[in-house]
Design a protein around this nucleic acid. Structure first.
Lengths: 341, 341
DNA sequence: TACCCCAGTCGAAGCGCTTCGACACCCCAT
DNA sequence: ATGGGGTGTCGAAGCGCTTCGACTGGGGTA
């Protein structure tokens, strides 16, 4: 392995000069700079990451904590991860992958051993045991999602309350008077996951505001569960004509189930999903949806982190406004007697 | 931050003694050992990762290169990643996440800067530009998938040739005489991706061996593409009664398409998928399938890597035997005149 | 009793880099 | 001519750890 001393010797300068050429932290004459750069190239020099980290107290590595838990929708996670890695690389950082089941200890481990300079933590629960740890850690972090008590933290998320509300508004605008939210598996709610809870809130509040009926039910991923859940829902609330779905993997089978139960989409039943755009577009009929801008959130998270690392200030909470795209799965509510409306 | 010197002072020993207690590389008296361990706990000492890496020439970090390319099936990737991280942690290693679009340079970067000790590279193409780089790198690597020329490499994969053959055998055993392979998007084949190519080979060879008709077609992910592909397939080969599907995201819509085209599964059309078990089980009818043991492959990859790091020997190529689970989607071929059989 | 060996511990030398202070040197203002 | 302030470069210290060689003392052997 070629070291900075080799480069220095080759270029006929001191090692510190090579370092300053590389970092640009002191002015170096054009002549010397070019000579050094030539030597770097000639020898194929790559600074040793550990030595650099040890001397500079900066590892240039970010930790990314991703959930690998039941009920989480994987492709969205992956989009996040991809965006985080790509953006981190733009800022000359690498990404260390941690799974959530290392828990708070895992965060302490990588932080206190100076393995990483900062952390991105996904899938924050409303009352998350990692939050107090994050607060005490001697390094910046950004949460994707946000807990009830977000004091002293930097959080980024889609505004799921608004997302839930948008869906209701969209359907109410189309004349639907009785709606249901078909949510994530119940485990996700029990875990007090922010995005699920907040969508629920947004849905319920908007339903009340609009004076429409809004019922909510979790839904597991198996076909039988979907069939059972939807059948029961429609038995108990036969007048439901609008469905909001926040549960990406069930979307395909759900369309099937509705067909089986004799409800045509959108003629008998309008559907709005909260999911990635490509999933919505792949269905037949294409789904009206509020998209989840995973890439933008991941980007934003890394950018905030880099800003914090450089001593800058970032907003405590960044809520991205949701956007609803109307496609084929939602339309005017079926005609009904106006006197009852 | 508390350093090893602090611990040494607190325990009344030399820093080197603390180091030996922690690493176990020299015998330390029970008395001293316990005293040191108490001090470590009392002070909450965590060794500095960079210092350790610099001194020991070991970062205890593995690189994981995952594809984030078009047509790749994301949940399977994620399962790999999860298995790799989990197993790496078991061996006290962390995982640095790289995306394939950093290309060969990315591998050189992390390797030559000693950021990592070893690499796991996924989604290897038959003629992969990263392979020569990997061969020259001064550290061990394990490939998931394998190129045409696997000389000097360590590769692990599901035996996709056998997987393709198993599917044919299963259907042929049930009396089907005309089969089709509904494959991945054509981009995946064009990229010369190993698993897709090999499945194709296994399928074609087995079809010939069994004396059945076997046609193959790639298939994109959109509903329209699926509809078009299947319709054309059945138009051109109306006698097809068995379908092998290697394209996880289209499975849901495919069942839909078949229904729409008036083919009942399994009565008119038997189906075998190559996909994760949970996906197969979630469908209606449940799919006969060859499962992709992502977790086992990930585990195995890390274990081989650790063995290599410790100077041990590992087989150049590990092919995991595929297992086919018969479920509801495949059955005896429809009755036909025996004289033509 | 003299010797050797081993278990247990220490001190010091690095690992490869960054960064601080010091030092030339040159140019400009006096 | 002389002093002052940049500019460009160097040397050395030090980041926190591992590891090597050396040292000490006690127990066994001859």
């Amino acid at each position: 392995m070629v070291t900075i001393a080799d480069v220095a010797r080759h270029a006929g300068v001191a090692a510190s000069t090579v370092s300053y050429v590389l970092s640009g932290k002191r002015t170096i004459s054009t002549d010397t700079r070019e000579r050094v750069q030539r030597s770097v190239r000639a020898l194929g020099y790559r600074p040793n990451a550990s030595a650099r980290a040890l001397a500079s107290q900066r590892s240039n590595v970010l930790a990314l904590v991703i959930p690998l838990r039941t009920g989480m929708h994987v492709p969205v996670m992956m989009q996040f991860a991809a965006a985080v890695v790509t953006t981190a690389r733009r800022y000359d950082h690498d990404v260390l992958l941690l799974t959530a089941d290392e828990g708070p200890d895992g965060l302490e481990r990588v932080a206190q051993s100076s393995l990483v300079d900062a952390l991105v933590v996904m899938d924050i629960e409303l009352d998350d045991e990692r939050v107090p740890v994050l607060r005490e850690l001697p390094m910046p972090s950004v949460l994707i999602g946000y807990p009830d008590d977000a004091d002293g933290l930097t959080c980024i998320d889609l505004d799921f309350v608004a997302a839930g509300a948008h869906c209701v508004d969209h359907l109410a605008d189309l004349g639907h008077r009785s709606l249901a939210l078909l949510g994530t598996p119940s485990a996700v709610y029990e875990r007090q996951t922010g995005f699920a809870q907040r969508t629920l809130t947004g849905f319920a509040d908007a339903a009340e505001r609009r004076g429409v009926v809004g019922v909510e039910t979790p839904c597991e991923h198996t076909f039988d569960a979907i069939l059972h859940t939807v059948r029961q829902l429609l038995d108990e609330h036969p007048d439901i004509t609008g469905l909001v779905v926040q549960n990406e993997p069930i979307i395909g089978p759900l369309l099937d189930v509705l067909r089986r139960l004799g409800r045509r989409v959108p003629d008998d039943m309008s559907l709005v999903a909260i999911c990635a755009d490509d999933v919505a577009e792949r269905q037949v009929p294409q789904l009206s949806s509020v998209s989840i801008p995973a890439e933008r959130i991941g980007d934003q998270a890394v950018e905030s982190l880099i800003t914090k690392l450089e001593g800058g200030d970032v907003p405590a909470l960044t809520l991205l406004p949701p956007a609803l795209t109307a496609r084929e799965s939602s339309c005017q509510a079926p005609h009904r007697d106006l006197t009852t409306a």
